[in-house]
Design a protein around this nucleic acid. Sequence first.
DNA 1: AAATATAATTAGGTAAGCCTAAGTATTATT
DNA 2: AATAATACTTAGGCTTACCTAATTATATTT
Lengths: 218, 218
Amino acid sequence: MPLSTTEENYLKAIFSINGANDNRATNQLIAEKLGVNPASVTDMLRKLDEKRLIDYNRADGAKLTKEGFKQAVKTVRKHRLWETFLVNNMNFTWDEVHEVAEQLEHIQSDKLTDELDKFLGYPKFDPHGDPIPDANGKLAVVKSKPLPEAGVARKLKVVSVTDNSTAFLKYLDKQGIALNDSLVIKEVVDFDKSLLVELKGRKEVFLSKEAAGKILVD
Amino acid sequence: MPLSTTEENYLKAIFSINGANDNRATNQLIAEKLGVNPASVTDMLRKLDEKRLIDYNRADGAKLTKEGFKQAVKTVRKHRLWETFLVNNMNFTWDEVHEVAEQLEHIQSDKLTDELDKFLGYPKFDPHGDPIPDANGKLAVVKSKPLPEAGVARKLKVVSVTDNSTAFLKYLDKQGIALNDSLVIKEVVDFDKSLLVELKGRKEVFLSKEAAGKILVD
DNA sequence: AAATATAATTAGGTAAGCCTAAGTATTATT
DNA sequence: AATAATACTTAGGCTTACCTAATTATATTT
Ligand SMILES: [Mn+2]
Ligand SMILES: [Mn+2]
Ligand SMILES: [Mn+2]
Ligand SMILES: [Mn+2]
């Protein structure tokens, strides 16, 4: 039986919380990410556990099973392919795509997904620098770290952003920061950890610790 | 407030039953078209009436209001644009698109709809020969009639089909009948009203009354 | 260890959209 | 006009996915 839109969203949320380091997906983090009440999360996690899409218990939180992982990756694949399509072919900007992709990711047609992938030329990354899983679920592992954790005076490259909100992405646009831009941290302001950054060897901009933390570099 | 997927489907069903001649959309016809129970239809028609998207009463059935009509046309526009996209760009055949378009038609983004329209080159007709409403809701009126109502020995053109099921469309493929093909009725078999038809001035095929009735010609 | 804060669960509800079975209108037939 | 057939509505329920408020379990402080 196909998963409901809601089930897919829960699996995707758990997937993104687990992340690369298998972080514990707690009831509360999931509730926050999906904008629902923790009590509702309890219900759904039980249901997903019963369907063997996750393993759930109070101590370890929710962990995707093999099948749950497969389903989550499939939804992520669709999300990122559609975002790429919207930017590449529908004249959307990177701050406009997320909401629509949240809808498009639930379209059920393997043929469409794979044809879209082909049409786009099998892209490896989406407009936010996130890797796109291929038809077998394989996705590129990119080594990167939040900007504040990178060293001063080293030449860095913007690899991706961890906040896809319009507000944040428009802010980056305004600062003149885009994917693949090169930058160098010139100075870390001591009392608030904000960064003075040189962009593409020219412009210098200040970034708050909060904003910088959402920019992944390599 | 945006309409639910279900509400959109009801409006679309009423739209297609009303058709060009304003046929009465009865409880039963709607139930049949949507594959639900007539009792469920009663509930929903009440709700749509309260929302002023239709006028409903037992005698006249359901009739779209101005607003309901606008919404229905919008959904139809999306459905037909997506079908065109699937055939033109995603290597779908005309018998494969309907199901997927049933999902895609509910994606809410005017920008996407209009960009898609532009991307496709503002197509006037979908893969089944149905007219695609433009951004203002205007749609081409095509004069056509069911093949059995056309005269014998007149040169006709296939304009559209009224059954979008895979089964029927594959049958047409097999018979070698496609949109815009020219044909001539050579003979009407008296006892079962089946037709002997000459295709593109060459091949001759037999069509049952039932099949022919689903082919619109001009 | 006790007290307090935080996290998760339970209990009881709601709304949308569907169902079946039974009842009431309406229309068609005799 | 009476009867039968067809169409529609009502009544009562179900499932999914939510909610709030109250309770219980687990961590964290003191
Ligand atoms: Mn996104
Ligand atoms: Mn993205
Ligand atoms: Mn269709
Ligand atoms: Mn069509």
